[in-house]
């Protein structure tokens, strides 16, 4: 069994998850990254996407998944902290709402024609992440 470390997933309105995990997989700025215990001190921005955490074994029952908006990940040897505006668990996703938001976000993105479209890209990615969360349960 791999060493466990402390993970907190925090939004301004709630402490969404707190517990001992073996691995965290998060959408880092430079691509998805997996964090294990004893990670070198790291501070990275996160893209909107899916955060997975729990036992190293993907089939383990204690794996949790969250769709997150853009945020930050801080990793230390014995703990990791994820900060994001919004994080939703699969059971909190409203499929119709997410589909509607995805459509609106995609329209908004198309309007921008590739200029200064960070917000819109993130909105699209966040809506997609939510839909993926309910489409593919653990």
């Amino acid at each position: 069994m791999a060493t466990r470390f402390h993970l907190s997933l925090i939004t301004p309105t709630a402490l969404k998850f707190e517990g001992e995990v073996e691995i965290v997989i998060a959408p880092g700025a430079a691509g998805d990254l997996g964090v294990l215990a004893n990670h070198a001190p790291l501070l990275t921005t996160l893209r909107a996407g899916i955060v997975t955490a729990g036992s190293a074994n993907p089939a383990a029952s204690d794996r949790v998944r969250f769709a997150v908006d853009r945020g930050f990940l801080q990793a230390l040897a014995d703990k990791a902290v994820i900060l994001t505006d919004v994080a939703v668990a699969p059971e909190e996703v409203n499929g119709d709402e997410a589909r509607g938001e995805l459509r609106r976000a995609e329209d908004a993105l198309a309007q921008k024609h590739g200029h200064d479209d960070g917000e819109e890209r993130a909105a699209v990615a966040f809506a997609r992440a939510r839909l993926e969360l309910i489409a593919r349960p653990i």
């Binding site: 501070l43 930050f72 230390l76």
Partner: peptide, 23 residues
């Protein structure tokens, strides 16, 4: 801690500071 920053300190700062004001 000797932190490593991704993509780089400047980019992390540029993302974190506005968030800090907002929060």
């Amino acid at each position: 801690n000797a932190f490593e920053f991704e993509p780089d300190p400047k980019a992390v700062l540029a993302a974190l500071l506005p968030k800090y004001v907002e929060f």
